[in-house]
Design a protein around this nucleic acid. Structure first.
Length: 178
DNA sequence: CTATGGATTCGCT
DNA sequence: GCGAATCCATAGA
């Protein structure tokens, strides 16, 4: 599913256009990923893994494909997928997607009809992702699915990551053009 | 633009 | 232990 030998930024690129689905409360929802950021391990000041292993980021140090969910700003859930070798603490943050299934369910969860998943907190809310999913592993659970794009996606833009003050020079935010 | 929200971590005592 | 600062955002005015 996630090749542990690939650099984290390469994984981020490849996951653009992938279909991320969830089965929560018996309801199926799915998005096509359009915005992803890469985060390194203990050598990346912007990464949660920078200060080493803690109770919160424990799942970041699991095998590639592990899901890492954390609370952002005390309000939102943010979902990451671990990459690289176990113990490295590398992961990609799923920052946005385009709904492709279960839009009505997403609209109900979001209490909105538009902008259903165009942000990290919106994406998890639309898919029903929460702390209950932290530590699960893609391929080992039916609750979350990830399917890589069957055909090449369009242009991929690389920009600095947002919301951080460190390592601004590292262009590790990837967005699908259009 | 501002209000909001709560867990986590760190620096002290 | 305890308090304070921090934090990869969103909605609504």
């Amino acid at each position: 599913m996630i090749d542990p030998s690939l650099p984290v930024d390469e994984v981020a690129r490849r996951l653009l256009g992938a279909r991320l689905g969830s089965m929560v409360g018996g309801e199926l929802t799915a998005v096509e990923l359009t915005e992803i950021e890469a985060y390194g391990g203990e050598d990346d000041p912007a990464s949660h893994a920078y200060r080493g292993r803690t109770p919160r980021n424990e799942s970041m140090f699991g095998p590639a494909g592990t899901i890492y969910v954390y609370r952002s700003y005390g309000v939102h859930w943010c979902m990451n997928i671990v990459t690289g070798l176990p113990g490295r603490g590398e992961a990609v943050l799923l920052r946005g997607g385009r709904p492709v299934a279960g839009e009505a369910v997403m609209a109900r969860r979001r209490r909105r009809a538009t902008n259903l998943a165009d942000g990290p907190g919106k994406l998890t809310q639309a898919l029903g992702i929460s702390a209950a999913h932290d530590g699960l592993r893609l391929g080992s659970t039916d609750l979350v699915s990830l399917d890589l794009p069957v055909r090449p996606v369009g242009t991929i833009l690389a920009t600095p990551r947002v919301g951080i003050s460190q390592e601004v020079g590292r262009p590790w935010r990837f967005v699908l053009a259009g």
